[in-house]
Design a protein around this nucleic acid. Structure first.
Length: 262
DNA sequence: ATAATATGGTGAT
DNA sequence: TCACCCTATTATC
């Protein structure tokens, strides 16, 4: 679930559903009991996403949430029992949200927010993001481009799915040293990231396959048809039918087409 | 039942 | 480069 698009969509959905009225905040699991007590009865005045970081401003206290690999922030359907795993529950009259398995859920001082965001690379989903900083950061790196795209200090919000998909779409070999990319290739990656992450926010899921390649609009694609290479090792490339390859790049599995990406 | 896996990141070795 | 954290779902005995 969580790459940058997820967090930006969450910021939007939390703000629109929770409004600005006082909220009930609890920690059914108990591991955020003190923080929840501080937030209880306050209202949400702003929800802001920076890459994969989410900051919720409760009119004073600020909550920092990072979902990590398995965290989820979702609206429980119906009104069954509240699972023991819910770290944070926020509710108003009509809406409830459950946060489970987050890597981070803690109150921070206002200064800590900028401390965190200052270290992040540009986030293509934020207004005023600086693509030139992304391009310059790549030019300084000898690490493989596939590793650089996962580095949140270089570009914020890309995860393991998008990095593989972007490199396929741009026809770039994942192990190419970042500094070896031409400036136009680096800029193309930025523009692609911006367009794809925006679409991810809109659809609330990752769909990278183009309407041309899929033969149907992106929103209607089945899960299995939504991606070009991610987790498709051994299967034929959608463009050239060569077998998709898997390898470790930057400590994570990466997938690519050895023919389209060289 | 138990294990493996996951769109992430940190801290120790 | 590894071990580890957190939870839910799927795969394998």
């Amino acid at each position: 679930m969580p790459e940058g698009h997820t967090i930006h969509r969450l910021a939007r959905d939390l703000a629109s559903t929770l409004g600005t009225e006082p909220l009930q905040v609890t920690s059914p699991q108990g591991r955020f009991a003190d923080g929840a007590a501080d937030l209880d009865g306050r209202s949400l005045v702003q929800a802001d996403a920076w890459g994969k970081h989410l900051f919720l401003d409760f009119d004073g206290p600020r909550l920092h949430v990072h979902l990590g690999l398995i965290g989820k922030f979702r609206r429980p359907r119906g009104d069954g029992p509240i699972p023991d795993s819910v770290r944070l529950r926020i509710e108003n009259g009509d809406t409830a949200w459950h946060l489970t398995g987050p890597q981070t859920c803690r109150l921070v001082e206002p200064g800590e927010v900028s401390e965190i965001t200052d270290k992040l690379g540009p986030d293509p989903l934020r207004r005023g993001a600086r693509p030139d900083r992304f391009v310059e950061a790549l030019a300084r790196r000898r690490a493989p481009i596939a590793a650089a795209l996962l580095d949140q200090n270089i570009i914020a919000g890309i995860g393991n799915v998008y990095r593989a998909e972007f490199l396929f779409i741009e026809g770039i070999d994942p192990v190419t040293p970042a500094a070896n990319l031409r400036p136009d290739q680096a800029l193309a990656l930025w523009d692609l990231a911006k367009a794809q992450l925006r679409q991810g926010v809109r659809l609330n899921r990752i769909v990278t396959v183009s309407a041309d390649d899929a033969g149907s609009p992106p929103g209607r694609l089945r899960r299995a048809d939504a991606l070009y290479v991610y987790k498709r090792e051994g299967r034929p490339c959608r463009r050239c039918a060569t077998e998709i390859t898997i390898g470790q790049v930057g400590g994570r599995s990466c997938w690519w087409c050895p023919s389209c990406q060289s």
